[in-house]
Design a protein around this nucleic acid. Structure first.
Lengths: 197, 197
DNA sequence: TTTGATTAGGACTAAATAGTACTAATGAAA
DNA sequence: TTTCATTAGTACTATTTAGTCCTAATCAAA
């Protein structure tokens, strides 16, 4: 267990607080208390709450990209199976925190994206890349006959991305993960070639 | 133009402010200024900001239900066509306000749903009903051969609902509506029977 | 006319909160 | 040892903001 720098530790603590309580319900003093790092030191590393928010967003994204890399690129199995593992992971994480907050990225967009343009732009870039990655995977899947090839891969990728975000948010409303698997499996069937049904 | 009561006028003004600036960036004094209604009168009708928020949520829902009724129940045409009109309407409304806020319902969930359980429960009921309505329509569409019948209607309805919400939120990130139609039309094709493709 | 509901005005409170100022200690590297 | 980055502590400011209090007017209905 290599000790984190104060800076990284503050980011981790803030990330957790933002997820649980939301951005606007988390005071800088909460971050001070929860992290044990002095306020002066926090403002030494982050010039404002907006600045800290941006760092937290970067941490969220980094975690997601790592998971994506591990589950989709470095692992073996069919695309459908990989997708199941990836969405399972997201859902389990959400369930662990009582379904609170839905997707941390969208929550940050709602709470900061209006006034903090940097947050919006960073999210825009992330989702653009995510759709690009999905598009590639779907393209490959189509070539191998695992995914239907009668509809444009980038549209299927966009649909999946939108569905995933919406589903995460609706779970935070329902506070219940039960219906998730069936819904996801149905969507995955819709992505497969008709011959496979 | 029958004049609104103060109470309804305040709700309308607050609804617009919440959509544009968000809940936590709208002070009660903003509502006072924008509506021209005195603060004492606002607190005469709404015992707290949470209370006003709940009334605004009710107004959002009421508007949506009216549109749904008009476009899906009282009008003629295929289900696919009706769905296009309904989503067009939502998107045009979002585009009119510069794509800000995405779906007002989800925004309220993020900004109020954590601390105001009434907001969450009301949203839960609304989305449950919405999926029920979509399920019925899809069921009918399936019987008439317009929608595929090899997958459960309620799952298709859930998927559509999740997709719609996610898409609205992602548009608020992209600040751009251009890709919407193609994505929606692709999803609609996925809902149709294979024979129709 | 009387009564009860609605309205404005305006001053005020209490609390929360982002951010600052300043001092002094600590630690690591050169 | 010197130097520079990092850290804690603590008090403080300035602002925002939800909500209250109290008075007095207006208005509609009984």
């Amino acid at each position: 267990m290599n000790k984190l720098t104060n800076q990284d530790h503050v980011i981790q603590v803030a990330a957790e607080l933002f997820r649980y309580r939301g951005l606007s319900n988390t005071a800088m003093d909460d971050v001070v208390k929860q992290s044990g790092v002095s306020k002066s030191n926090i403002y030494y590393h982050f010039k404002s709450k907006d600045d800290l928010t941006l760092a937290v967003l970067e941490a969220y994204i980094s975690t997601l990209e790592t998971s994506f890399q591990k589950l989709f690129i470095e692992s073996h199995g069919s695309l459908i199976e990989k997708t199941k593992l990836y969405t399972n992971m997201l859902i389990e994480e959400l369930a662990e925190r009582g379904c609170i907050g839905g997707c941390p990225l969208l929550s940050l967009m709602v709470e900061a994206g209006r006034t903090n343009e940097q947050v919006r732009v960073r999210l825009e870039i992330f989702f653009e890349q995510q759709v690009d990655h999905f598009t590639q995977l779907i393209q490959q899947g189509a070539e191998q006959g695992e995914i239907r090839n009668d509809l444009p891969a980038n549209m299927l990728a966009s649909i999946f991305s939108s569905w995933l975000e919406g589903m995460l948010m609706l779970i935070s409303i329902k506070k219940n993960v039960d219906s998730f698997r069936k819904e996801r499996d149905t969507l995955l069937k819709m992505l497969q070639p008709t011959s496979k049904l």
